[in-house]
Design a binder for these strands. Structure first.
Length: 580
RNA sequence: GGACCUGUGGUGCAGCUCGGAGUGCACGCCGCCCUGUCAAGGCGGAGGUCGCGGGUUCAAAUCCCGUCAGGUCCGCCA
């Protein structure tokens, strides 16, 4: 007989399991009193809550327990009297009678009601996170997260990947995200940093012959927080040797589809893909939300010889907003402000009415131009057409942002549209000093066909970098890495990184590569974001047990806090006064 | 660093435009009643620095300025 894992020294069953227990048997359960309903001197109902669900116990009115008391109840499993069955509960057809109630801990009235139907201010929830965690929503989300983690591990294991842990105390590599700094006590004046990702460690594992590595890794970045960004977040991080981009996409797809199946019960057939250039052209972003169409339409040809000054730009693009003709003038002004905030010179709008185009600009358009605007994306009467004329990339990005602002459904709605975005550009413009900036990171392999452009036309160089996108959220990214010193030095040169700088920043990696670096490639994607989308949550805080606020505070512990004088002395650090 | 939104008994909200006594609603809490409820019901009660500071005014939850906290976004996130 297999062991009953539910039974412990204190109980022999979980609440929900009592539903299938034998009528008439005596069971002992433990949990919190979710609700007490009193019916006079000799009858009271207790809803007992544990991690499995809720169970009703019938007790004498003299039993002195209140909400959130921790109790142990031994009772007889009894069918409920006719007419008192509750269809909404798994345990709704039975109850515990002849109960012996033992109070394991008393409880004060909680600062908010632990009821999922009630909205509580997040500040209050975060201050008492341990109580919020008792509620069904967070219980479900964190259990979903555990299920996703389990399926990801299983998928990686199945594909021959070896789980390896890498250090949290790492060396500073001043590049990319701002790092969290940890002062060294034994080496005063010197510092560790917490890794923004295990990037270099995993490449060293490839040099170390591990061939296929993965880890569910915590990453830390000291950058401003957002709905989808916390200081610390969790990635499925992986790297493999003797592989191409296609191999990595296949490994990751298998893992993600496995997780999707575990989370939703349905395994998506495959993950579609498009190039970065296509994504920008059609959706105005490198993370398209494919749950809705509203694609960007190109009117550049029509407006190439336009007389309208506002449209005299290299690129003229438009989107159709269904039913948007009903937007008020102030709403349209608001959209225009939004477009300007994104860098556009302006935003042209055209209401499609039975009488034709309604817009301040309508009377300036030629017949051909007006016809083109009126037909954008098959526009009908009642629709709105938004037009941006500007440099190509800017026009795309502005309309892409408006597309999302006006069209994207809530996270909880619609299908899960997974998408690979490939062929990212190698370089991402130039910095203040006129040096090119790496779009992904400086170890990213350029596209084989574009190697010769590094010196001649670097902004045209495509890289072997790729992103995984789900419903408009960037889940993660990866690349084929440079394992050849000659290509690496050409990329460093393009980035304006001198040999000395390269040595001081990444010397240990470049040094390792001298001893036989296999061709390798990898990927990492955010589990917080993936689980949030599975859970239908707009915010990753809802899938994290103890998250921080947007200003990086932990309202429960009070972190960050000052440390003692003694700690400061030991670390040989000095706090300079505010404003200095 | 910047923009916008929010802050009113323990919780959620209304009151704020157009200043006039801490006014209202729902939940919770405490007490009493109630033998089949399940967001139980009935009666009664307690509970407030209207985030904080300043200003305008005879008078401020309400108007103005500043500040703090929370949220969404821009910048930032190789």
């Amino acid at each position: 007989m297999s062991r009953n894992f539910e039974a412990t020294s204190l109980r022999d069953s979980l609440c929900a399991s009592v539903a299938s227990a034998e009528i008439g048997s005596r069971v002992t359960v433990c949990g919190w009193v979710a609700k007490r309903r009193e019916h006079g001197e000799h009858l009271a109902f207790l809803d007992l809550r544990d991690r499995s669900g809720v169970l009703q116990a019938v007790v004498d009115g003299s039993v002195d327990v209140r909400n959130e008391y921790v109790v142990r109840i031994t009772g007889t499993v009894s069918p409920r009297p006719e007419g008192t069955i509750n269809d909404r509960l798994v345990t709704g057809s039975i109850e515990l009678t002849e109960c012996v109630v033992e109070v394991l801990a008393t409880a004060e009235a909680p600062p908010f009601q632990l009821d999922d139907r009630i909205d509580i201010d997040e500040q209050v929830r975060l201050r008492h996170r341990f109580l919020d965690l008792r509620r069904v929503a967070l219980q479900d989300n964190l259990r979903l997260r555990a299920k996703v983690n389990r399926s990801l591990r299983a998928a990686m294991d199945e594909q021959g990947f070896c789980e390896v842990e890498t250090p949290l105390l790492w060396a500073p590599t001043p590049e990319g995200a701002r790092e969290f700094v940890v002062p060294s006590r034994l080496h005063p004046g010197e510092f560790y940093v917490l890794p923004q990702s295990p990037q270099i460690a995993k490449q060293l594992l490839m040099v170390g012959g591990f061939d296929r590595y993965y880890q569910i890794a915590r990453c830390l970045r000291d950058e401003d927080l957002r709905a989808d960004r916390q200081f610390e977040f969790t990635q499925l991080d992986l790297e493999a040797s003797f592989v191409s981009q296609e191999d990595i996409l296949a490994f990751v797809s298998h893992a993600v589809l496995n997780a999707a199946e575990a989370a939703t019960g349905v395994r998506p057939e495959s993950i579609s893909s498009m190039t970065w250039a296509e994504a920008l052209d059609h959706y105005g972003t490198d993370k398209p939300d494919l749950r809705f169409e509203m694609t960007l339409q190109d009117l550049s040809a029509v407006f190439a010889t336009t007389e309208v000054k506002a449209f005299g730009a290299p690129t003229v693009k438009a989107i159709k907003v269904s039913e948007g003709a009903a937007f008020t003038r102030s709403r349209l002004d608001q959209l225009t402000e939004q477009a300007k905030a994104l860098g556009a010179k302006g935003l042209a709008w055209f209401r499609i009415t039975p009488e034709g185009l309604d817009s301040p600009l309508a009377r300036f358009l030629s017949g051909e131009e007006a016809a083109a605007v009126a037909n954008v994306d098959g526009a009908q009467v009642g629709d709105l057409v938004l037009v941006v004329a500007d440099e190509y990339v800017l026009a795309c990005r502005v309309l892409g942002a408006l597309r999302v602002a006006l069209g994207s459904p809530p996270v909880s709605q619609g299908p899960h549209c997974y998408l690979w975005v490939t062929e990212f550009p190698m370089f991402d413009g130039v910095d203040d000093e006129g040096h090119l900036m790496a779009a992904h990171h400086p170890f990213t392999m350029p596209h084989a066909d574009d190697l010769d452009l590094i010196e001649t036309d670097p902004l045209k160089v495509r890289s072997q970098a790729y992103d995984l996108v789900l419903n408009g959220w960037e889940l993660g990214s990866g690349s084929v890495r440079i394992h050849r010193a000659d290509i690496q030095s050409r990329v460093f040169k393009a980035l304006g990184v001198t040999d000395e700088e390269a040595q001081s920043r990444f010397g240990f990696l470049l040094g390792a590569f001298k001893y036989g670096a296999p061709p390798h490639a990898g990927f990492a994607f955010g589990i917080d974001r993936l689980v949030a989308i599975f859970a239908g949550e707009e915010n990753i805080r809802e899938v994290i047990a103890f998250p921080k606020t947007q200003s990086g505070s932990d309202l429960m512990t009070g972190a960050p806090k000052s440390i003692t004088e003694r700690q400061i002395r030991e670390l040989r650090i000095k706090i300079s006064p505010k404003g200095s």
